[in-house]
Amino acid sequence: MPPQQAVAALPARASSNLRLGLLVPAVAAVVALALLPVFTSGYVVYVANVLLVYVVLSLGLNLVIGEAGQFSLSHAAFYGIGIYAAALGNKLLGLPLVGCLLLAGVVAALLGGVIGTIALRMRDIYLALTTFAFGEAMQWLFLNWEPVTGGPNGLRIPPSSLFGVEILNDKQAYPVVLGVALLMLGATVVISRSRLGRAFRAVRESDVAAMAMGIPVRRVKIMAFLLSAFYAGVAGGLFATFSTYIHPESLGFQTTMTVLTMVVVGGLGSTGGALLGAVVFGLISELLRQAPAVQEMTYGLILILFMMFVPRGLAPAVSRWVRGRGHV
């Protein structure tokens, strides 16, 4: 192959003609997903709800780490803030479901903005460490602020209501969870293609050059942080709609790592990858839930092996495969 063609054949990360080819299967998938509760048991719907929460978490983490290249390790903390905000909005203020979800997202985003502003005074490494420490501190707060969070005993969540109808089980919650997750997915695609999305990637690739293009680098980084926290908060709000109980044990670094693994397995910087990673890895982690040691080893091995052999994750490989099939 002459050099010119070799270059032209190398695809960049974003590809628009691929999206059209995926439209039909995507619509089919949405219809199938919408009909899921009709055909399956409560447990399957519960797992589907959990996976959809993971999808929203992954989309958010991918925005900040994958798109903007800023290492944030406090995703579980924002998720937790979302859960508590939604639960308390429901319990104390009697907010309807939509209000709870918004409250969850906004509270998490505000905190994310504050932490981001402080942590972004320094380079990436410090950001990782500060957000890690922030995550630990928040888990401590969840465990110890008993009047609000119920402390280690956890918090009972009253059923939330949508248009006056109480949501009492997984099947009732599912349409809401699915709808919001799809909405977030759509928003992610729009953001990623927008001016802001380009600014995120510019900052990731070279902050010096981004500045020279007139991009306010610090503000863009904080924006990525804030948006990602909003996603995590909404994911927390979704979790609160189908759960009756919150336990702070599950809001630590382990959860951040689970989501990080999903994004890495799917492919950092790719929306489709975050989606794929959340579903594939969410199933694995659900399967291994009873064996924590095996679960930890699996996470560790997957992260190491992917970094060694598939550093860009599954998404590019899958899109190559789809493209390849299209040519036949």
């Binding site: 960049a12 974003a14 990637r201 990731r204 690739e205 010096v208 050059a209």
Partner: peptide
């Protein structure tokens, strides 16, 4: 050179 190396030429 300070290009956005991982992005497309157009981008």
């Amino acid at each position: 050179l300070e290009l956005f190396g991982g992005l497309s030429v157009l981008e």
